[in-house]
Design a protein around this nucleic acid. Sequence first.
DNA 1: TTTTATCTGTTGAGTAAACAACACTGGAGC
DNA 2: GCTCCAGTGTTGTTTACTCAACAGATAAAA
Lengths: 190, 190
Amino acid sequence: MLPIPDEKLDPRVKRTRGLILQSFESLLAEKNFESVSVQDVTGKAQINRATFYAHFQDKYALLDHSISQMFKQEIEKRTLNACHYTPDNLRNLILVVCEFLARLHTDCAQPHNQFESLVESTIKRQIFELLSYWLKQTKSKTSAELPATVATWAIYGLASLYSHTKKRPALEKFVDEALPLVAVNLEQFA
Amino acid sequence: MLPIPDEKLDPRVKRTRGLILQSFESLLAEKNFESVSVQDVTGKAQINRATFYAHFQDKYALLDHSISQMFKQEIEKRTLNACHYTPDNLRNLILVVCEFLARLHTDCAQPHNQFESLVESTIKRQIFELLSYWLKQTKSKTSAELPATVATWAIYGLASLYSHTKKRPALEKFVDEALPLVAVNLEQFA
DNA sequence: TTTTATCTGTTGAGTAAACAACACTGGAGC
DNA sequence: GCTCCAGTGTTGTTTACTCAACAGATAAAA
């Protein structure tokens, strides 16, 4: 498992993207997503606005990329990106999603729903890709598409529920209860 | 090369210079000046080595600029840059120089003397310019050059003594003793 | 001696970013 | 209706930075 060759990218590009991401995330801690403008981001990042558009199509693409990156980091932190399907890995995945959404709700100041729906589609895409990767490694001849879809939606739904409850139950306990509900459709891949 | 026009300046220039300064100063906290290479600085700053030479002639110019900046900040912090000569301002100046050299000796890991002599000439230049500015504002007809020179050397000498003593006396007390020795030649400007 | 190695300071060409415009949109206020 | 305002995307030109290569210096092996 190589530590990723760290794309030989122009240092200026790395710097600029880093500044954009960093500024964006810190702005999300103050304002809600809808009221963060591209100008705000480029202003805080101290880069030109035209430069922003050389890297992202618009602020929605930026949000997508930002959320993807953060989520991917969490996945890699637990090496779930180099796994196959096991109930335990699934359990960890559910845990990560719950933690991630919960943190998003405490860190970011935004009750708006455009933000939430954008986050949802981004995260679900990530979950689905990971699950597909897991399930493809088994010798099961049945397609993984439907089970992966069901599990993806179930996981996100549970994590969303968890992150929205005012008085959150203990995470470990919640995941223990949630796991079997998701695992039931994936047993054939174990 | 560095006329230091700071306000309306290309953001890339500001960023690059900031990165260089910042990297240099953090490297000085680890190594002594002689063993810090230009490569080290540009490496830590994540800029190309050729870019460094577009901003500074060599690492000695960088040291000069770095020390100057830091010292100037201390001066401005106490608004000594917008003053005329009074015994109290002189007292504060002595205090700043003592503090500055003392902090330099605790923050930077360098017993070498090339570093020290470079610092000395840089700081003395700053002190001399400030004193000249102060003394020029009085109506005294006598030239300020000789008194400013004497005071400059005296102040630096005292601060150097202070910063080198292993068991430093209380700063306030030290300055109280030092002040009259310096002020005696400047009374005509008070 | 020659070799190997690391750092320096400089050059020319290629590229990312800055800048200063531009037309356009949606909303607020009159 | 209208203007005003603030933000969006885009463009052509200029500037700053990157990159690879260079010769020279220094020093420590071989």
